[in-house]
């Protein structure tokens, strides 16, 4: 099986955010919100780091 780097980021972020949401909050609504926040931070952080590395290289 081969996946793109971005697909790997999305899958990693999705699964990790689900577990973080369930385990780090007590109420269902807060679980969803925290999971969504984690997902956005994972993906956004990776994109930001990618651009930072591109800028350092160029």
């Amino acid at each position: 099986m081969t996946i793109s780097h971005f697909s790997a980021v999305l899958l990693f972020s999705l699964f990790t955010s689900i577990v973080f949401g369930i385990t780090q909050r007590a109420e269902p609504k807060k679980m969803v919100r925290f999971g969504a926040l984690c997902f956005a931070l994972f993906v956004g952080g990776t994109i930001a780091a990618s651009w930072a590395m591109w800028l350092i290289k160029h």
């Binding site: 099986m1 081969t2 996946i3 790997a8 899958l11 990693f12 999705l14 699964f15 990790t16 689900i18 577990v19 369930i22």
Partner: peptide, 21 residues
């Protein structure tokens, strides 16, 4: 519901890791 989500997430992550060799 939490159990099912945890099962899918953790087993899915492990299975993808194995599938990626």
């Amino acid at each position: 519901v939490r159990a099912a989500l945890l099962l899918v997430s953790i087993v899915g992550m492990f299975a993808i890791g194995v599938a990626l060799q």
